[in-house]
Structures are given as structure tokens and as C-alpha cells.
Write a protein that binds this DNA or RNA. Sequence first.
DNA 1: CAGAATCCTTCGGGATACTG
DNA 2: CAGTATCCCGAAGGATTCTG
Lengths: 116, 116
Amino acid sequence: MMTQASDIACPIQRAAMLFADVYIIIILRDLMSGPKRFTALQQSGINPRILSQRLRKLTREGVIARTRFAERPPRVEYALTEKGSALLPVLDALKNFGEKFLAIPEITEDSQTILQ
Amino acid sequence: MMTQASDIACPIQRAAMLFADVYIIIILRDLMSGPKRFTALQQSGINPRILSQRLRKLTREGVIARTRFAERPPRVEYALTEKGSALLPVLDALKNFGEKFLAIPEITEDSQTILQ
DNA sequence: CAGAATCCTTCGGGATACTG
DNA sequence: CAGTATCCCGAAGGATTCTG
């Protein structure tokens, strides 16, 4: 399978073929709170090669925009476009689900003792 | 990166680590309309090895449930659990985005002529 | 700072054939 | 029908180094 996203009739599948990727979701999450620089995005634990790849893809798809500021030293920022901002509902839905159904197993002093 | 999903503090990332996969999203989409059999799910173009893998993962995570019916011949059905149904908002959001921003390039007779 | 280049390894996927 | 088993390959990812 896995042809071109644009060839697929189902909108869910088209969207999935673009965003079903952990790194992309992390990047989008990070950008939801405002524009970020390359180095800032790296802090989420994405190595530079992967990050660069994904940023290029998202830019190509019009989901984010790259801006170079003519400063000394030059600065580059990535920001969501209008199209990218339209993904907020997706991230919100993921967040709700994650909070309700994928809770972190609490490690209290007590439970640690018990669990051994 | 890519540790255990349950270790991650961010609920979006925990959810992403489970569902950021084209095949899983397709399976969930198919099950949203009701329980389905293995063969039916294969029709979406997923090969049996991948399908089997993903069904096992989703079952393990409590997102879907497998039911064997004692018939002749025996029948197996996969259905969303309550947890799985809670993913509807995610799929809905993906669908809305896909419809609005990832339209299929229309190939009309005219546009074909023009595009050459 | 914002990446590109290189290397190396592994994992994941497609195809196909087989089975209780 | 509902999967499992094998094979085989390309692509993707981690780590590290380098540079305009």
C-alpha cells in the first residue's frame, strides 16, 4: 500500500499519512505555544537530522513557516501557519485521550515498597 | 529517544507513541463503523502480517477486543472497547482537517488538458 | 546557531506461501 | 477463515562530526 497521500479518497487516511509520526506530533505540540528556534525544538529529544527532515516536510506541506531574521547573529524561527493552527483540535483530542486513558503509573514511596 | 510511552510526562506524546501509525489509524477508522472481521480489515490494503501485529498491539492496550464466536465455521470479530471509542474525537479532528486542508486534486477533463 | 554530511545498524514492511 | 512463518530488502533512525 502506501501510495501518495493525495491519491487517497479518505480524508482521515490522507491526514494520517502526513501526521502519523511521533516526531511531527511533538514538533506541532511545541509550536502550538508559539514560534520556536531549531535549538529549542531539539530540546524535546529529537536529533538534528530527524528534526531537519521533519521541518522540511512540514514546511513543504504548508503547515509551518520558516523565517530568517536579519540580525547579528542571524536567527531562524519556525511557526505554525493558518493551516498548521488548524491542527489544534487534533492535538487537543490526543491530549484528552492521553490524560484520561494513558495515565502515568504513579510511583509513590508506598507503591514502590509494595511493587517489589 | 523513544523510551516507554508510559514514562513520558506529556499526554500528547504518550498518545502519539501509541497511535502515530498509519495502519493503526486505518484500523480504528474501520472499526468506528462497527465490529469487523480479520478479512474485512484486510480489505483496506493492509497485509496480514502487519494487520495481525497491530491488532495484537491494540488488544494489549485495551483499545479493541477480540471475540471468538463458537459457530461453524468459527468466526472472530474485532470491536472497539470503551477506551477505543474514546478515540472518536481524534479521528473526527483528523477528518475535518483532511477535508479542509488536504483536498484531493480534482482531475477533470478540462484540467487534464490544461495541465499537460 | 542552524543545520548538512557520513556511517552504520536495525527495524519494519511487502510479497508470498503455508496451516489449524 | 484467521492468522503464522519466511525471506528479503530498503528506508529510517541514532550517534557523531563538521561548517557557513
